[in-house]
Simulated assay, not measured.
Amino acid sequence: MRFAGIVLAGGAARRMSGVDKPELVVRGSSLLAHALAALAGARPLVVAGPQRPGYPGVVWTREPVPGTGPVAALAAGLEPVTDAAVTVVLAGDLPGIRASTVERLLAALDATADGAVLLDAAGQRQWLAGAWRTAALRAAVPDDPENRSLRRTLGVLRIAEVPAEPGEADDIDTPEDFERHR
């Protein structure tokens, strides 16, 4: 299946003292490299966040006002997506994300679903690990996306839930999370 990929990689990382989380190295690769590898085959492959060296083939974009949240970053990330019927959206801080995760999300999109998201071990939807019909995603993003809730924005769509395999939905939000995954 042809799909676009967007990695949201511009957060402030307040709980990590402002470190550039997507550049943290886990198992020999940056978190951003893990996300991009999971999206192998995506066209275009977009990163919404500050441009970083060493990632060839990536289309870089940024929300008009940096730091205004994931919905604004998603809106910016959708701009270069012109002809893909499906868009996979991932956070830039997922150490356990892999190509097989993306394959399962894509497979879960059936005729009744606008999107498919990972469910973590606690049964919570992981909004930044999902595959979406691009038209539904565009329709859900408000004209003024700054400082909007991703859960509220995407939660109105018809969603298939995909149980995460162990570690797949983990993210790195704190120094303790990082130490656990190093």
Score class of each variant (00 low, 15 high):
Gly77Ser: 09
Val117Pro: 05
Ala164Thr: 03
Phe3Leu: 11
Ala113Phe: 10
Asp177Phe: 13
Val65Tyr: 13
Gly67Glu: 08
Trp132Lys: 03
Pro142Ser: 08
Arg15Pro: 06
Arg148Thr: 01
Gly28Thr: 03
Ile159Asn: 06
Pro64Arg: 11
Leu119Cys: 08
Gly5Ile: 00
Gly155Phe: 14
Asp173Met: 13
Asp93Asn: 15
Ala42Trp: 09
Gly69Thr: 02
Ala72Phe: 07
Glu79Met: 14
Ala129Met: 09
Asp20Met: 09
Gly18Trp: 06
Ala135Tyr: 15
Val46Leu: 05
Ala72Thr: 01
Ser149Ile: 07
Arg133Lys: 14
Thr174Trp: 07
Arg98Phe: 08
Pro145Val: 01
Ala35His: 01
Leu90Arg: 01
Arg180Trp: 13
Gly57Arg: 06
Glu179Pro: 13
Glu161Trp: 14
Gly57Trp: 12
Ala140Trp: 12
His181Arg: 15
Leu45His: 02
Ala9His: 08
Ile6Thr: 05
Pro80Trp: 04
Ala135Asn: 11
Val47Trp: 05
Ser29Glu: 13
Leu24Asp: 02
Arg104Glu: 02
Val59Gly: 06
Ala169Pro: 11
Asp120Asn: 14
Leu157Phe: 10
Arg125Tyr: 09
Leu39His: 08
Arg14Met: 09
Leu118Cys: 04
Pro142Arg: 08
Ala84Lys: 13
Gly54Gln: 10
Pro163Glu: 03
Gly67Cys: 06
Pro44His: 02
Asp173His: 15
Ala76Lys: 05
Arg180Phe: 12
Phe3Gln: 05
Met16Phe: 12
Leu94Lys: 06
Ala139Pro: 13
Leu39Asn: 00
Val86His: 06
Asp120Pro: 12
Gly92Phe: 06
Gly10Leu: 05
Pro95Gln: 00
Pro44Asp: 03
Gly115Glu: 01
Thr101Cys: 12
Ala91Asp: 11
Glu79Trp: 14
Gly77His: 03
Arg182Thr: 10
Leu90Gln: 07
Trp60Asp: 00
Leu154Tyr: 12
Thr134Leu: 09
Gly92Ile: 01
Arg14Leu: 09
Ala75Gln: 10
Gly96Glu: 03
Pro70Trp: 14
Phe178Asn: 04
Val81Arg: 00
Ala40Ser: 15
Ala116Gly: 04
Thr101Ile: 02
Thr87Tyr: 14
Gly167Trp: 11
Ala9Asn: 04
Leu90Cys: 09
Arg52Asn: 01
Thr134Pro: 13
Ala113Cys: 13
Val117Asn: 02
Arg180Asn: 08
Ala129Phe: 09
Met16Gln: 10
Leu150Cys: 10
Ala111Val: 08
Ala42Asp: 01
Ala136Gly: 06
Trp132Thr: 01
Arg104Tyr: 06
Ala131Ile: 05
His181Ile: 08
Arg151Thr: 09
Ala129Asn: 05
Ala13Ser: 13
Asp170His: 15
Ser17Asn: 15
Gly11Leu: 04
Asn147His: 15
Trp60Phe: 07
Val71Thr: 01
Ala160Gly: 07
Leu90Glu: 01
Ala4Phe: 10
Glu63Gln: 15
Gln124Val: 04
Arg148Asn: 08
Arg52Cys: 00
Gly41Gln: 08
Ala73Asp: 05
Val25Pro: 05
Leu39Glu: 00
Ala75His: 07
His181Lys: 11
Leu137Trp: 08
Val71Met: 07
Pro64Tyr: 03
Thr153Phe: 12
Thr134His: 10
Val7Ser: 04
Ser17Cys: 10
Leu150Ser: 00
Leu24Ser: 00
Val58Asn: 01
Leu105Ser: 03
Thr68Asp: 09
Gly41Asn: 07
